[in-house]
Amino acid sequence: MAGVSTTVLEGIRYLVANSDQALGLLVQHLKLVLVSELAAIAIAVPLGVLAVRYERAREPIMAAGNVAQTIPSLAVIALMFPILGLGFRPAVVALFVYALLPILTNTIAGIDGIEQSTLDAARGMGMTDNELLVRIQLPIAFPVIFAGIRTSTVINVGTAYLAFFIGAGGLGRWVISGIDLFDMSQVFAGALVGAVLAITLDLALAGIERQLRSDSGGQTAAV
């Protein structure tokens, strides 16, 4: 246990001593996560909608999403190296691929979970497919979709550590060079900043969700 507290203390000391560098790595890390996550949201939500609307599109979309998630994260990142080379762009593509599935499955589950009677009533009163989507399906599925976005984001922060292997920088740098140099304080400092980032993003997303729900006059009063 003495070893643990030493590592923790040394780690915090390292972080304080190198706060400038920490900030730089944090910004790199955050850019990787935000760009890939926004792209994943922009693709996964429409894909989920397509999968629900067109029965025939559903299986291939789900299958592709499942395969993307089953392939190890390191494999996705390493594969970008021969295809796109080194740096920020290949790392973002890899993280994007990896961030898709939780949002996709939650979009589908959220829309699928809507009660048949609600849809029946909406169709019966003459809503078109698009009106049904905008007025009924997306608002009701919103909390579930957003939960998927939160899960995906937290995982993304962890996966982005591996981006350093293909030269995209980020907090992986401290962790990896810490392991290489057997410097546990550096490893700990790198992990700590990432953990804080993950928690902060999760809380921020929770806040955004609450804001969006009350803006749209959603279910806040009933919850």
């Binding site: 922060v157 907090l171 790198g190 992990a191």
Partner: peptide, 12 residues
């Protein structure tokens, strides 16, 4: 949520 690489390192 603990990054795998960091956890491995810290356990060494």
């Amino acid at each position: 949520t603990i990054p795998s690489l960091a956890l491995f390192g810290l356990l060494i």
